[in-house]
Amino acid sequence: DGRAGAISVFTESLAAELAPLHITVNAIDPGATDSGWMSEEVKNALLPRFPMGRIGLPEDAARLIAFLASDDGQWITGEIIHSRGGF
Score class of each variant (00 low, 15 high):
residue 20 P to W: 05
residue 71 D to E: 15
residue 74 Q to H: 14
residue 64 L to Y: 06
residue 79 E to G: 00
residue 68 L to D: 04
residue 37 W to R: 14
residue 27 A to P: 04
residue 4 A to P: 00
residue 35 S to A: 15
residue 6 A to F: 08
residue 64 L to E: 03
residue 18 L to A: 00
residue 49 R to A: 15
residue 34 D to H: 11
residue 47 L to D: 06
residue 7 I to V: 15
residue 38 M to F: 15
residue 31 G to I: 08
residue 66 A to E: 09
residue 61 A to L: 12
residue 3 R to E: 05
residue 55 I to C: 06
residue 53 G to S: 10
residue 52 M to G: 00
residue 52 M to D: 03
residue 40 E to K: 12
residue 61 A to K: 02
residue 21 L to G: 00
residue 11 T to P: 00
residue 27 A to C: 08
residue 84 R to C: 12
residue 54 R to Q: 13
residue 5 G to T: 07
residue 30 P to S: 09
residue 55 I to M: 08
residue 5 G to H: 05
residue 15 A to S: 12
residue 73 G to D: 03
residue 17 E to A: 13
residue 53 G to T: 10
residue 18 L to H: 01
residue 38 M to R: 09
residue 79 E to A: 14
residue 41 E to F: 07
residue 6 A to K: 02
residue 33 T to G: 03
residue 38 M to H: 14
residue 2 G to K: 04
residue 62 A to C: 05
residue 66 A to N: 09
residue 85 G to W: 06
residue 50 F to D: 08
residue 13 S to W: 03
residue 46 L to F: 14
residue 61 A to W: 01
residue 77 T to R: 02
residue 14 L to Q: 07
residue 12 E to N: 00
residue 51 P to F: 08
residue 22 H to Q: 15
residue 21 L to A: 14
residue 68 L to V: 07
residue 70 S to T: 03
residue 15 A to W: 01
residue 59 E to G: 14
residue 23 I to F: 02
residue 10 F to Y: 15
residue 16 A to E: 10
residue 39 S to Y: 10
residue 38 M to W: 13
residue 74 Q to T: 13
residue 58 P to Q: 11
residue 68 L to W: 05
residue 85 G to P: 08
residue 47 L to Y: 08
residue 28 I to R: 01
residue 79 E to C: 12
residue 28 I to M: 06
residue 58 P to M: 11
residue 8 S to H: 04
residue 66 A to H: 11
residue 65 I to Y: 05
residue 77 T to A: 05
residue 44 N to H: 11
residue 59 E to P: 00
residue 18 L to G: 03
residue 1 D to K: 10
residue 28 I to Q: 01
residue 21 L to C: 04
residue 55 I to R: 09
residue 53 G to Q: 09
residue 5 G to R: 03
residue 25 V to L: 04
residue 82 H to V: 14
residue 41 E to H: 13
